[in-house]
Each structure stands twice: as C-alpha cells, then as structure tokens.
Write a protein that binds this DNA or RNA. Structure first.
Lengths: 232, 232
DNA sequence: TGAAGGTATAAAGAGTGCGTAAAGATCGCC
DNA sequence: GGCGATCTTTACGCACTCTTTATACCTTCA
C-alpha cells in the first residue's frame, strides 16, 4: 500500500504514545493521538482514521465503553492494548468489536505486523474514491479508463497522462510547467507546444471546443484546468 | 451471525483437532478437518470455508507455504496456531497473509472470541470469492483451471501466471512492470518482449484477436487488462 | 492599424513499441 | 539417456505514437 494510512492512538500514558508514534511514523503512517476516551472518540469522528489503537486503561472512561460508542457508527479496525492479560477481558473486548488484542508488554515487530494485517483487509474505503466524474466524462484513475457518455475513449500514453493529471485536481489550474515536467520530464519544461498538440488531440477525442469548452479550459499564459458541467 | 459458518481446521495432532472440533461445534459452527497441508488446501478449495485455522507445524509442508498457496486465490480469514512463540515467526505469518496468530497453549475462550472477531468482518470477503467469469472464459484460481466455452484450456506456468494475474483484477490495467516482476522476478522488469510472447500464446489458445479483443486488451505503452463480454 | 505573444490545427518524417514466427537452450519426465 | 514440453533468444514487418515543422488565428497593446 503506497499511500499513507492514518492511525489514531488512544492512550493516556505519554511514554507509550511517544513509543507508538515513533514506531508507526517510521513505517510511514500518519499518526494521530488522544489521551482520553472522549478525545479519542471525537478525533475518530473528525479525522476518520484507517485504524485505531485503543488502550483499555483510560482515566476518564472505560475502554469497553469507548469501543462500544465507536462501533455504533464506525467499522474502522480497532487494535486493543492492555496490561491486563485476563482472558475474560480479552473476550469482552473482542466481542465488543475489537479486531485484535495485544497484551503489554509486547514486541514492536509483532505489533507492527498486526497493524499491517489489519490494514491489509480494510481497503474497501480507498477503492471507491477513485473515478472522478465530469458530467458525461469519467476518468477512472484506478482502472486507467476514460469514458464519454458511457463509451470508452482510447487515449495514448501522453494523452491519458495529461487528462489524469488534470482530473486529479478537478477545477484547479495546472500550470504548463507542471504538466510538462510530469509528462515529458524536467528537461522539456520549455516545450509548451508539445502540450498544445496533446491538448488538441484530447479535445478532439472528447468532442471539446476550445472556444466554448465543456471539459478542458485554457488559462492563457498559465495552464489548463478540467471542469464539469456544473462549473466546478 | 445466525447462520452457521463453516470452519476448516488444519492440524496434524489428532487431540488438538478433537479439542477444537468439540469446542467449535458446541458454538454451532460446522467444522471440517485436515491433517496435512495439501489436504487442507484441497479442502479449502472444495468446501470454501468461512475461516481457516492453520497450525504451522505440519508434517508434509511448511505452514508458511500452505498460507502462501491459499492466498494465491482466496481471501478467507486465517487464524494461525503455533507452539513457537518467536516474534519473527509471528511477523512472517502475519505478513504472509494470516489475520491472527495464537500461541499454544491458549485459552479456549480467547480463541473462540478471536474466531468470532474474524468471522464478524468476513462478509465482504465472501463476495469476491470463487472463479471470476469473463463470458465464455472462466479462470478458477483455486483449482488452477481455465475453461473456454466449458472445455479446459491447457496453459503453461507462465501463461497461467499471466492470466491469473489479469483475472485477479478484472477490467483493471496491470502494468508491464507489475506483470514482469510477478512472473519473471524483479530482475526482468525491462524484458517486455517476454511478455508479448506469452500474451501472444495465451491469445492464440483463447482464440483472441489483438486488434478486436474479446478478453485481453492491450493498453499501448502501459500494460494489459482482462475484460468480459459486457465490457467490464 | 499593425505587430507580438500566445494559441489551435494540420501534416509529414522518425522512432518506438507491438505482434508474430522460428530457432536454440533448458528443464522435467519417463 | 532420450524425448517432449517449456522457456529463452533472435529477428522482422507493421502500425502507431511522438516529434518536428509549418501555418492560421486570436487577443492585447502600442
């Protein structure tokens, strides 16, 4: 998984938080922290993390309670930490909606492996966020497919690279330098006529008219931007 | 979970199997058993259990190997059992595709709770199971069988590896680098002509025409993708 | 009004990538 | 050890994409 996952650590002990923050950050994860249960719940609601690490021994409210409230609206994977090794505790937490239970003290390598295992089976949220739509035009970045009125449009590498770049930032102007650098490489940032030719090809395939564009708008002297029918 | 889930226990020790069978059956689960790795794999392919309990210490083949083969075609949750408590072992298993790792001896209540936790998050995995179908073409990843209009197509290792890779992500473009890395290894990511030859062979065996493809579509300069008749 | 900078489009040549065939090398099986 | 299947290597024709070059247009400002 190349894109960084966001993790929320809910633990009252600062040294544990620090330990986890350092360990998880070094793996490339984005780490959020909360010292209390209520803070953790509001953070989970606001930031929508991809995984929650929850310590059962919190000062303000029972860890079980936090878990139950979280599960009322979220299916995010939860890894529970606890010093209590009692089997009853584990059963309660797991049946309360936790996905894994690790007893302190624990090996950091095992902990990280369990985090990876939990994140691995959770990419359902990531999948559906691709395929931005611009009215009759859809640009599916995951499938590398472009459709116009439902029919597929055949694009060459550079044509697709251009459209994908524009579609990644809908409505925003992408400068010519940016486009040239990403498609032709840093050595061709001055060959802006390359860009015009490819833009013309894409427009032709999309049935787009530069003077009254449906999709690709020219920003003279600056760059291009991709719009939808509702003028994003 | 009201309807009974089917569990597969792969363990060579009869007393462990008996213990688990009794414990799991008393919870209402349907329990299948296998004493060896190869038996476990074929059972998993035939019965499609909802969860697999896998002991790493099998007589005929390495548990890691069983896990790897299973993961080639199935997303079924796997709970690994082991007497070895080494952290390296745990990390290997979890990164190899296991969803949980329990060290023997273990408390049966905790074990059952972990089973429940794994089954709870399982329903999304069920949907994508079984053999993907592309009109007259079926690619059964579990049995390593490819059929066209109902008759089996004989494919070589590389040919099958290519088709399986494409069939794992229907409709999605798989880049040449990805295919070369997975089939020939990271040292041959530049030998794209290997790819063309194998693609040509598969196309020939499937009666597919590159210019108007039924199945394998070329994305020039990028890679290939597998489509169905309904233009996935 | 005319020149200049930036833009759109067309067309031709060069170069690359793709598909196919066939021969040599290697592996596995009997 | 021999044989067949599979994989690797080599070669070549073809289509397509990219680059290059050229020309017309449009807006802005002197």
């Amino acid at each position: 998984m190349s894109q960084t996952a966001t993790l929320l650590v809910i633990d009252d002990e600062p040294q544990i938080r620090k330990f986890l923050r350092i360990s998880l950050s070094s793996q490339g994860y984005k780490v959020l922290e909360a010292a209390t249960g209520s803070e953790g719940l509001s953070q989970a609601a606001l930031a929508r993390p991809d995984l929650v690490v929850l310590d059962l021994g919190l000062p303000d409210m029972d860890g079980q309670h936090v878990l139950r409230e979280l599960r009322e609206w979220s299916q995010v994977p939860v890894l529970v930490l606890s010093v209590r090794a009692s089997e009853v505790q584990k059963v309660e937490a797991l049946d309360g909606g936790a996905n894994d239970y690790v007893t302190k003290p624990f090996g950091i390598q095992e902990f990280l492996a369990r985090v990876r295992a939990l994140l691995r089976q959770a990419p359902q949220a990531v999948a559906q966020e691709s395929a931005p739509c611009f009215g009759p035009l859809t640009v599916d970045l995951a499938f590398r497919r472009v459709t116009l009125d439902g029919v597929e449009v055949a694009l060459t590498r550079k044509e697709y690279a251009l459209l994908a770049q524009l579609a990644s930032h809908p409505g925003r102007v992408i400068t010519q330098q940016q486009l040239l650098k990403d498609i032709w490489g840093p050595t061709h940032v001055d060959d802006s006529h390359y860009l015009r030719i490819v833009v013309a090809h894409v427009r032709q395939k999309l049935g787009d008219d530069p003077t009254s564009p449906r999709f690709i708008v020219t920003e003279p002297g600056v760059g291009y931007r991709l719009i939808g029918p509702d003028a994003i």
